[in-house]
Computed example of a mutant assay.
Amino acid sequence: MALLPTISSPAHAAPLPAGFVRLADVDPSIRQDIRYAGLENFLHRKADGYDAPVCILTRQAAKALSTVQKAMTAKGLTLVVFDCYRPAQAVADMGKWTRQGGPPDPQWYPTVQRGDLIAEGYIGELSSHSRGSTVDLAIAETDKKSSAHPACGAPDGGTLDFGTGFDCFDPKSETASALIGAEAAANRKMLLAAMRAAGFRNYAREWWHFTLTKEPFPKQRFDFPVTAN
């Protein structure tokens, strides 16, 4: 009897854990620029666990973020998310990377040794991102998508002036820093006010970092990969 050839079906990602959603399924109008899925980040490579440039959040955080987006859209603006849920394996990857040591990096950490990034509080050995209700983001003009390189941090993807780019590990990134210009300070205040109104709190060391105050998993960290579907 002839044997039929074995046909392997394409692999499908496992369903998201209960309570998690892909942001695009809640609000596809929010621009996504997920940095750790590519090369434009302080690692200069993809982080472990990022199999797609996709924002995943808890349903509560995604819905709250959508309310902020509606307020931005009314002003001709849009949110741009740089990181959302972060697998625990990515956090461990970043920690291991810092321990390899090295000199400052002019783009990402211009005044700090690589091995001191954890001690200085710029990279955490644990991260609220792994709880699924933390997001790193900025605001951009709706019709502007050009990419420029700020003095420190990520290419801005057409964002408004915030004084630094995302993941600039420097005192200028502190939300209330006096080292930035008036326009950047005003834009930070606008982002802060909009996020607070939707129930998010800011991490004072990073103007871009916000966590939902009433997060559903305050003591639980997750490690499923970031996938497109």
Rank of each mutant, 00 (worst) to 15 (best):
M1G: 15
S9D: 05
H12R: 14
A14T: 01
L16Q: 02
L16I: 07
R22T: 00
V26Q: 13
D27Q: 07
P28R: 02
P28N: 03
Q32R: 09
D33P: 03
I34T: 09
G38P: 02
N41A: 07
F42L: 06
F42M: 05
H44C: 10
A47K: 01
A47G: 09
G49C: 09
G49A: 07
D51T: 01
V54P: 00
T58C: 14
T58S: 10
S66Q: 07
Q69H: 14
T73F: 04
T73P: 07
L77Y: 14
L79I: 04
L79S: 06
V80G: 01
F82G: 12
D83R: 13
R86S: 06
A88H: 11
V91K: 06
D93V: 10
K96H: 11
Q100Y: 06
Q100M: 14
G102L: 12
G102N: 00
P104G: 02
D105H: 09
Q107Y: 12
Y109M: 03
P110E: 12
Q113V: 13
R114K: 15
G115C: 08
G115T: 13
D116M: 09
L117C: 05
I118R: 04
A119P: 04
G121D: 11
G124L: 09
E125S: 03
L126H: 12
H129N: 15
S130Q: 08
I139N: 04
E141P: 00
E141N: 13
K144C: 08
K145I: 05
K145S: 13
S147Y: 06
A148R: 14
H149C: 10
A151P: 01
A154E: 05
G157H: 08
T159M: 15
T159V: 05
L160V: 04
D161M: 06
D161Y: 14
G163W: 02
G163I: 00
T164V: 15
G165E: 10
G165S: 14
D167Q: 11
K172I: 08
K172H: 01
S173A: 15
E174C: 02
A178T: 12
A184D: 07
N187G: 09
N187W: 10
N187A: 05
R188T: 04
K189Y: 03
K189S: 11
K189H: 06
M190V: 10
M190K: 07
L191T: 06
A194T: 08
M195I: 02
A197L: 03
F200Y: 13
R201M: 12
N202I: 01
N202C: 01
N202K: 01
R205T: 00
E206P: 04
E206A: 02
L212V: 03
L212P: 01
L212R: 06
T213R: 14
F217I: 07
P218W: 03
R221E: 11
F222L: 08
F222E: 13
F224T: 10
T227W: 02
N229T: 15
